[in-house]
Simulated assay, not measured.
Amino acid sequence: MQFIKTTLCFAILLAAVLSVHSQVVMDLYDGEVPNSKSFAMEETSATDDNGITRVSGVTIPTLTAYFPTNDVVNTGKAVIICPGGGYGILAISHEGHDVAKLLASNGVAAFVLKYRLPKDEIMIDKRIGPLQDAQRAIQLVREKASEWGIDENQIGVAGFSAGGHLASTLSTHFSKAVIDNPKHTSLRPDFSLLLYPVISMQNGITHGGSRQNLLGANPSEADVNRFSNELQVTPDTPPAFLVHAEDDTAVPIANSEAYVAALKAHSIAAKLITYPKGGHGFGLHNKTTSDKWADHFLEWLMGI
């Protein structure tokens, strides 16, 4: 009886939170975080003069859920958002929470993934650490879909920069679980949104910092190919919407172009929005243009 009362109280509290703030933070794992070493690392968060918050030292990954409030129509769609930061930090505000708020205001449930950054000190195998958290995120959202008013077949992933590499890795490596999956829940996203993404680990196209943080200073050819996601596309890879500026010197637009070409070679729907200028890391707002990529994405999303 006490359990029922506690559960009921939690449900009432959750409903109240959603109606007012539309935001809930939850631990990604119920118990022990997989692939972890015992190492004292402090999570830090710093906000610069531009209002951009960067998080590092994550050892306890979380999901922050933004559900559509009562004043908008719930589309039943959901997006798991992976902020960027070169696999060294998480630009969690403008490439995470700001995007989630916009999606929720348009009837799309959004989940900001605060994932572990690959570090040998805290991980047994740092190459798969971020992917484990991404797979767990989609597993959790899909298993809770009916409870949260989400269509289990309309759950996608978004990623910015190195978060785009993680999102595209989730979109191409879903057939092999790197987490426990006792219910055999599908780990495949139904669509992906990739903003100035790191796609490839190949020399001449990759972002060097992201590759080194994920794979080490001298990765094997097998690892480079394994995590070059343009090489991992199959007919089962989900459709994708990509955004990239042509003058991006940090992550060349060739990354997005290679992924789109691979998708189209397998007859998978893909749309790439390009801007002549904007550089890297502009988040929702490319200040060089009045065009809003998010408007195009929402139109595309409602049509798939």
Rank of each mutant, 00 (worst) to 15 (best):
M1G: 10
Q2S: 07
F10Q: 13
A11W: 09
L13P: 01
L13Q: 09
L14S: 12
A15H: 05
A16N: 10
V17L: 15
L18Y: 06
H21Y: 15
Q23T: 05
V25T: 14
M26K: 10
D27I: 01
E32A: 08
P34H: 09
P34S: 10
N35F: 00
E42D: 12
T47E: 13
D48K: 04
D49H: 11
I52H: 12
V55Y: 01
V58L: 02
I60C: 06
T64E: 15
T64H: 07
T64S: 14
A65W: 05
Y66V: 03
P68R: 12
V72I: 12
N74F: 04
N74P: 07
T75K: 05
A78C: 14
I81N: 04
C82N: 11
G86D: 05
I89Q: 08
G96T: 03
H97A: 11
L102P: 00
A104W: 02
N106P: 01
G107K: 06
A110E: 02
F111H: 07
L113G: 01
Y115G: 00
Y115L: 00
L117R: 02
L117N: 01
K119E: 01
D120P: 00
E121T: 06
I122M: 06
I124E: 13
D125S: 02
K126F: 02
I128Q: 07
G129L: 00
L131K: 01
R136N: 05
I138H: 04
I138E: 06
Q139Y: 10
E152R: 14
G156E: 00
G159L: 02
S161G: 11
A162T: 01
G164W: 00
H165K: 08
A167V: 03
A167S: 08
T169H: 03
S171Q: 03
S171I: 02
S171A: 15
K183A: 14
L187V: 05
R188I: 05
R188S: 13
R188C: 11
D190A: 07
S192C: 15
L194P: 15
M201G: 03
Q202S: 13
T206Y: 08
G208D: 13
S210R: 00
L215M: 04
P219Y: 07
E221V: 10
E221F: 06
R226P: 03
N229K: 00
T234S: 08
P235S: 12
D236K: 15
T237V: 05
F241Q: 09
L242M: 15
L242V: 12
E246W: 06
T249Y: 10
P252C: 02
I253K: 06
E257W: 01
A262K: 03
A262W: 04
K264I: 12
A265Q: 14
H266G: 05
I268M: 11
I268H: 06
A270R: 02
K271R: 13
T274M: 08
T274R: 15
P276M: 14
G281Y: 04
G283A: 08
T289A: 08
W293F: 09
H296A: 15
F297Y: 15
E299P: 02
W300T: 07
W300H: 08
M302I: 13
I304P: 05
